[in-house]
């Protein structure tokens, strides 16, 4: 009995089990306190769709051996630029969305290429370098936001007439465009079909990619560089490609996030955004050396549901918004746990 319990823990992993139990407890409290469960579930679904692609961005980076992408903010900035360009030219509806995604993808890929070249020079220190590359770019872009030649009066400061505002509202035809696509209600739960479909498409793309010759080569380059070299795979190239994919996905993930959120937040807002994404994929059972699409999906679902439900539940018990604090504690402890774990070589 105890043995099989231990096996269960080993199989699921202690942190994941803790989070699942915590989640269950929250759900019970929520139903006891008669909180609107259907609304909580709808909100959770939206947040899963919003954040999913950014979490997914961790997968190619880990698989190629470049480790968890702590520099995801680089991609996030590319996504922001995509949104800003569309908003500047007031492109509407799906045209706007697709343009934003395209710009984000191209910029993200280009930035990811350079970032990947750097990461190849600093093997073993990718996480620290990535973090500070992200921090530097985010703070450097603050100056850009102030000076950038955007003219749309909706976007720039009223006083002075120069420099982008801190928070920009996405125009109505673009905001929640995916959330509202084919949305329907079942048992009181709103299903944001378009949003989830976008997430699913990204998952499908990665799944197929990792079954192709290129994808398998990348996976092998990450799993055992010496083996890969002996098969004629250029390990450095694969790591760059993994970083490019990751950054581009991060960029497109940010566009999806912004359209669902309804606002574009600039300046220091993206600074810490890579940490929850890293934490989510770890919660899903990934490690710094191995991450699957399934880890990303499961991790996003658990983490975002937890955050969504914890807010009203704790509010019903104590005053104040504990969800931000919970997010900080959970995501950082999760990353800490992964960092101190012996990289499992099973021996």
């Amino acid at each position: 009995m105890i043995d099989s319990f231990k096996q269960l823990i080993n199989k699921i992993g202690l942190p994941r089990l803790t989070i699942i139990l915590f989640l269950v407890a929250l759900l019970i409290i929520a139903s006891v306190n008669r909180l609107p469960t259907s609304m909580l579930l709808s909100n959770s679904l939206v947040r899963i769709g919003m954040n999913g692609v950014m979490v997914l961005a961790m997968v190619p980076s880990v698989q190629s051996g470049a480790g968890l992408n702590f520099g995801l903010s680089i991609g996030i900035i590319a996504g922001l630029i995509g949104m800003l360009v569309v908003m500047e030219f007031e492109l509407m509806g799906f045209l706007g969305l697709i343009t934003a995604l395209l710009i984000a993808c191209v910029l993200g890929a280009a930035a990811g290429y350079l970032y990947g070249l750097i990461l190849n020079k600093v093997r073993g220190q990718e996480m620290m370098i990535g973090t500070y590359a992200g921090f530097s770019i985010v703070s450097g872009m603050c100056m850009f936001w102030l000076l950038a030649p955007f003219k749309n009066p909706e976007m720039i400061w009223v006083v002075g007439g120069k420099g982008l505002r801190m928070t920009l509202a996405v125009n109505d035809s673009l905001a929640k465009i995916l959330d509202n696509l084919w949305k329907f209600k079942i048992l009181g739960v709103e299903i944001p079909v378009g949003l989830l479909l976008a997430f699913a498409l990204a998952c499908l793309f990665l799944e197929v990619f990792f079954r192709s010759r290129l994808g398998v080569s990348m996976k092998i380059a990450g799993a055992n560089p010496a083996f890969a070299t002996s098969c004629g795979v250029n390990v450095d190239k694969m790591r760059v490609l993994g970083t490019v994919l990751s950054t581009a996905l991060g960029a497109m993930g940010m566009v999806i996030y912004c359209q669902s959120f309804g606002y574009v937040q600039l300046y220091m807002a993206p600074l810490m955004m890579s940490f929850p994404a890293v934490a989510a994929v770890l919660i899903g059972g990934a490690s710094a050396r191995k991450a699957t699409v399934w880890n990303a999906v499961l991790g996003t679902a658990l983490f975002q549901t937890l955050l969504t439900i914890s807010l009203p539940v704790t509010r019903s018990m104590i005053q104040g918004d504990i969800s931000e604090v919970a997010k900080t504690i959970i995501s950082n402890t999760m990353i800490l746990y992964a960092l101190t774990r012996k990289e499992g070589d099973g021996e």
């Binding site: 092998i220 799993a223 055992n224 010496a226 083996f227 002996s230 070589d345 099973g346």
Partner: peptide
């Protein structure tokens, strides 16, 4: 080539 370093170069141990 059949590598002398079977576990390091020759195989993907966890696959």
């Amino acid at each position: 080539s059949l590598s002398e370093d079977r576990r390091g170069v020759g195989l993907l141990l966890d696959e």
